[in-house]
Design a protein around this nucleic acid. Structure first.
Lengths: 112, 112
DNA sequence: ATTATATACCTAGCTGTTCAAGGTATCGAT
DNA sequence: ATCGATACCTTGAACAGCTAGGTATATAAT
């Protein structure tokens, strides 16, 4: 037994990936750099994080992929499915909630 | 080797505890409920999370505790040390950074 | 009396996320 | 021919957080 819920603040990599891919299709290596850029270096997720998440998102039908040869190399481009868009919306709401929660917790003291 | 940096979004429980205790001393059980309240139920950390964090914060000198008997039971009140205040400041900055990073990542697309 | 609920402390053990560190292969530049 | 960048991937370990327990006292209900 003892089935564990995911840690309360996980799912952020997933959120970022879905958010970026919702604009346009991208490939893994590109996403790694892109996340660094759009977060102004605040968040840096390595390939060891990105690839597994992409694979699991594809497995559960949130993403679909197509292989595209580019100059000898092959890129795997991912794009968001309808299910992925639903997932994105949920994650965005979750994030909004906890973000707001923490912000209000950090605000000044018992000054009701 | 392979010494690992802490996961990029951890330390939030720590942050919340230090932040609350910076206003006034509190005891563990009280903090559990308090975190739920101040975050409008967005974040709910059980005793299994809170107590170990309190202990480790005390061990590294960020918190000090005093036992206080209240009607037969004994409460352990924690308060923030100078070192804890420094730690709080650091964690607040960290949080601010990643919070800002994610927010900007979630904003609209390539509309430069 | 006894059961139940709330308070108040704590720990052990699992598991999922994330991390570092590898490995493969192609390409362009030196 | 070697190097760095691109591009894909996986393995193994570390660690934070979760569930689920356990102890004990006080109070309220049965």
């Amino acid at each position: 037994m003892a089935q564990s819920n995911p840690p309360f603040m996980s799912g952020v990599p997933e959120l970022l990936l879905l958010r970026l891919l919702n604009d346009r299709e991208m490939y893994g290596y590109e996403l790694v750099r892109s996340i660094r850029e759009v977060t102004s270096e605040a968040i840096s997720l390595g390939e060891g994080v990105i690839y597994p998440v992409l694979h699991s998102l594809e497995r559960n039908g949130s993403l679909k992929s197509r292989r595209k040869p580019v100059g000898g190399r092959t890129r795997v481009y991912y794009s968001v499915t309808r299910k992925g868009r639903e997932r994105l919306e949920k994650l965005q709401n979750d994030w909004q909630r906890i973000q707001t929660g923490i912000t209000s917790a950090l605000e000044s003291p018992g000054n009701a």
